[in-house]
Amino acid sequence: GPMASDKRPRTAFTAEQLQRLKAEFQTNRYLTEQRRQSLAQELGLNESQIKIWFQNKRAK
Rank of each mutant, 00 (worst) to 15 (best):
G1K: 04
R20F: 04
E47H: 04
D6N: 05
S38R: 11
S48F: 13
R8M: 15
S38E: 10
R20E: 02
F54D: 01
T27N: 12
L18S: 05
T11G: 12
E16I: 10
A23Y: 10
M3H: 15
K60F: 04
I50M: 02
W53F: 10
R35K: 08
E33S: 13
R29A: 08
L31K: 01
G1P: 15
Q55T: 09
K60S: 09
S5E: 15
W53E: 00
P2T: 05
L21M: 04
L45C: 09
E42R: 03
Q19M: 13
Q26E: 12
R35Y: 07
G1E: 14
R29E: 08
R58D: 04
E47D: 05
S5T: 13
E47P: 11
R10C: 15
S5M: 03
P9T: 05
E42H: 03
A4E: 15
R58A: 07
G1V: 04
M3P: 15
Q19A: 13
P2D: 15
Q34R: 08
L39Y: 01
P9Q: 05
Q17M: 05
N56I: 14
Q55L: 09
L45A: 05
E16L: 13
S48N: 08
D6T: 05
N28M: 04
L31I: 08
N56H: 10
E47Y: 03
Q41E: 10
N28H: 09
R10T: 14
A15G: 06
A4T: 06
Q17S: 03
R29C: 08
K57N: 08
L31M: 06
E16W: 12
P9R: 04
L45R: 02
L45T: 05
Q26W: 06
D6Y: 00
Q37D: 05
L43V: 04
R20S: 05
Q34I: 10
E33A: 14
Q17V: 06
A40C: 04
E33N: 13
W53M: 02
A4K: 05
A12H: 13
E16F: 14
K60Q: 10
N56E: 08
E47T: 09
A12Q: 12
K22D: 08
E16P: 05
P9H: 06
K7C: 15
R29L: 03
N56R: 15
Q19S: 13
T27H: 10
D6A: 06
Q41L: 13
N28Q: 06
S38G: 09
T11H: 10
I52T: 11
R58P: 02
P9M: 04
K22W: 12
R36S: 11
E42D: 06
R20G: 04
R20P: 00
E24C: 03
L43Y: 02
N46W: 06
K7W: 09
Y30I: 08
A40N: 01
M3Q: 15
L18C: 07
P2L: 04
Q19T: 11
T27F: 12
M3E: 15
R58W: 07
E47I: 07
L21C: 02
K51D: 12
L31Y: 01
Q55G: 05
P9W: 05
E24V: 06
Q55W: 13
K7N: 14
R10F: 14
T11F: 12
K60T: 08
Q19N: 11
A23T: 09
A40M: 03
T14C: 03
K60E: 11
E47A: 10
R8F: 15
N56P: 02
A12F: 12
L43C: 03
R58F: 06
Y30P: 04
Q37R: 13
T27W: 07
L45P: 00
R20W: 02
R8Y: 14
I50E: 00
E24S: 03
F13E: 01
E47V: 10
F13P: 04
I52C: 11
R20L: 05
E33L: 14
Q19E: 09
A15F: 10
N46S: 11
E16S: 10
P2A: 15
A40P: 01
Q19C: 08
A40E: 03
I52R: 14
A4R: 04
R10M: 15
A15R: 10
A15D: 08
F54E: 01
R58T: 06
A40H: 02
E33F: 11
F25H: 02
E42P: 00
A15S: 10
K57T: 10
T11W: 14
R8W: 15
Q17T: 05
E33K: 14
Y30S: 06
K22C: 12
Q26C: 10
G1D: 15
E16H: 13
K57W: 09
A59M: 11
T32A: 04
R35Q: 10
E24T: 03
L18K: 07
F54L: 02
K57V: 07
Y30T: 10
L39S: 00
K22E: 12
A23C: 09
A23E: 10
L31A: 04
E42Y: 03
F54S: 00
L18M: 07
F54Y: 05
K60Y: 05
R20I: 07
R29I: 06
N28A: 05
L45S: 03
A4V: 08
A15T: 11
R10G: 15
R8I: 15
K51C: 12
M3A: 15
T11Q: 11
P2F: 03
R36N: 07
W53Q: 00
K22Y: 12
E42N: 03
I52N: 10
P9G: 06
A23V: 09
S38A: 14
I52V: 09
I52E: 13
S38I: 12
R58I: 09
K51Y: 13
N56C: 14
L43I: 06
T32Y: 03
Q49F: 07
Y30H: 08
Q17F: 01
K7G: 13
K57A: 11
I50S: 01
K60V: 08
E33I: 12
L45Y: 01
K51H: 12
N46P: 11
K7T: 14
P9F: 05
R35S: 05
L18F: 06
T11Y: 13
Q55F: 11
I50P: 00
F13H: 02
T14R: 04
R35G: 06
L31R: 01
G44W: 03
K22S: 10
R36E: 07
T32H: 05
E16D: 09
D6Q: 05
Q17G: 02
E33V: 14
F13T: 02
K60C: 12
P2K: 09
Q19G: 10
Q41V: 13
W53I: 02
R8K: 15
W53D: 00
K22N: 11
Q26N: 14
